[in-house]
Amino acid sequence: MIRKIHGSPQLINLPISLEKIFAPIIEKIAKLKHKRPLYTQYSLITLQSNSHFSHDKTTKQPQYHTRDFEETIKDIITYILNE
């Protein structure tokens, strides 16, 4: 979806087990180049953690409404690019 909105190039998708192997190398290369790494060991651990949150309580409130997902992604991309 982000490629469709922003036109970003496609990245290679690797299994998370391989990404964990490459994470320390990617972090060191990024540090040498004085850039932010694409991902870190910590970010991979966070992605695998149990992050299930319930919105049942919020859904019961009368003023609650969902937001269009594509609109949300567009706003996030705009924010990041303008940061």
Rank of each mutant, 00 (worst) to 15 (best):
L81G: 03
K57R: 04
A30Q: 07
T40H: 10
Q63C: 11
D75H: 10
T78Q: 12
S49F: 11
I2F: 12
Y79W: 11
Q10M: 03
E71W: 07
I26S: 09
Q48W: 09
L11F: 01
L44E: 06
I2W: 00
N13D: 11
I76R: 09
R3C: 06
P62N: 15
T40Y: 13
Q41V: 05
Q48M: 13
I2T: 01
P9T: 01
H65K: 15
Y79N: 12
P37M: 06
D75E: 14
Q61M: 15
E71I: 07
Q61D: 09
K28Y: 01
D68H: 11
E19A: 02
S43E: 11
I12S: 06
L44W: 12
I5W: 08
Y42C: 07
I2V: 11
P9F: 01
L11I: 00
D75R: 10
A23G: 10
M1C: 02
K33T: 00
I21K: 07
M1H: 07
E19W: 06
I26A: 09
Q41F: 03
S49D: 13
K33R: 12
R36M: 10
Q10S: 11
Q61Y: 13
I26Q: 06
H55D: 00
A30Y: 10
N50Y: 05
H52E: 08
Q41A: 09
P24Q: 01
E27N: 07
Q41H: 08
D68R: 09
R3H: 13
E83T: 03
R36H: 03
Q63H: 06
E19I: 01
P9Y: 00
I29Q: 11
A30E: 09
K57M: 01
Y42V: 05
L47M: 03
D75P: 08
L44Y: 08
D68S: 13
